[in-house]
């Protein structure tokens, strides 16, 4: 580990990931500091989700290392990384169908349940598991109030609207009391009001729960208003990094988004 980065929440060094011949991530390095809301942007297929999958243990990078709170997690399985205080949501919802909203969010508490989620605790429910269940239920109910999900608590997740499903998934991630929260396009397909709700939840999570956030987001208005720093990817390369407004107005970024000719026109028009 390098000097001075010991306090970083997430530290990625020289991440290299290929699928067969396709180089999805080309030597990415970046740090996320405690309390930051760090935006990850870039055109479709630029490798954002792949990077998150590397950080959460779903993909093994061919080269490079990932450290979370100073611990090397590069070769860890996802559930071990979750135990390090990392929670995430998925671009395409990953809720558990057939279960209620409440049970889905309760599952977010799993990392804190220990032997309370074992077979023996279940057998001796009345003297063992019940205590755990009630304690975790309290934590979850707080979150349900916080995220305003009271009315749909007992509904099966598959029957509620998509926007609410995304909110439930965020609640499930927050239920773990994560120190690092990773969100993959949490506002995809939402209208303005819903987007504002989610943005507020993310800001509140940072204020009240001391969560550091890594967020993939397409809506530039959201990125510029809530992210402290962003990294812009294009074809698996880091093409800009820094304060949101500065980073997304760099010529290389405009070019990546709009294509070369359009970018020239854009720059010309601005001049």
């Amino acid at each position: 580990m390098t000097e001075g980065s010991a306090s970083a929440v997430l530290e990625c060094r020289d991440i290299e990931l290929s699928f067969g011949g396709l180089r999805a991530l080309k030597g990415l390095s970046f740090d996320i500091m405690p309390g930051e809301i760090f935006g990850l942007v870039g055109p479709n297929g630029s490798g954002k989700t792949s990077l998150v999958n590397v950080v959460t243990g779903f993909y093994r990078p061919q080269r490079g290392s990932v450290a979370i709170f100073g611990a090397d997690t590069t070769r860890m399985r996802p559930h071990r990384i979750a135990a390090h205080g990392v929670a995430r949501t998925f671009q395409n919802l990953a809720l558990f169908r057939g279960m209620t909203v409440l049970d889905n969010i309760l599952l977010g508490r799993h990392v804190h349940m220990g032997v309370g989620s074992g077979a023996l605790a279940t057998l001796f429910y009345w003297v063992w598991a019940a205590r755990h269940e009630v304690a975790h239920r309290r934590a979850v109910e707080e979150l349900i109030d916080f995220m305003q999900l009271q009315d749909i608590r007992d509904e099966p997740v598959e029957v509620i609207p998509l926007g609410l499903q995304k909110r439930v998934e965020l609640a499930r991630a927050l239920a773990a009391d994560p120190r690092l929260l990773i969100l993959d396009e949490p506002m995809a397909g939402m209208n303005k009001e819903e987007k504002e709700y989610i943005a507020r939840f993310i800001l509140d999570a940072r204020e009240e729960r001391n969560t550091t956030v890594l967020m993939i987001e397409h809506h530039m208005d959201v990125v510029t208003s809530i992210c402290d720093r962003v990294m812009v990817l294009s074809y698996g390369e880091n093409i800009a990094q820094g304060k949101p407004l500065e980073a997304i107005s760099e010529p290389r970024v405009i070019q990546a988004y709009l294509g070369e000719r359009a970018a020239k026109r854009h720059v010309g028009a601005a001049a």
Partner: peptide
């Protein structure tokens, strides 16, 4: 229901 989602919340499949 979903093994990868189970993993991500800390459930070892």
């Amino acid at each position: 229901e979903k093994d990868y989602a189970a993993e991500v919340i800390g459930v070892s499949t």
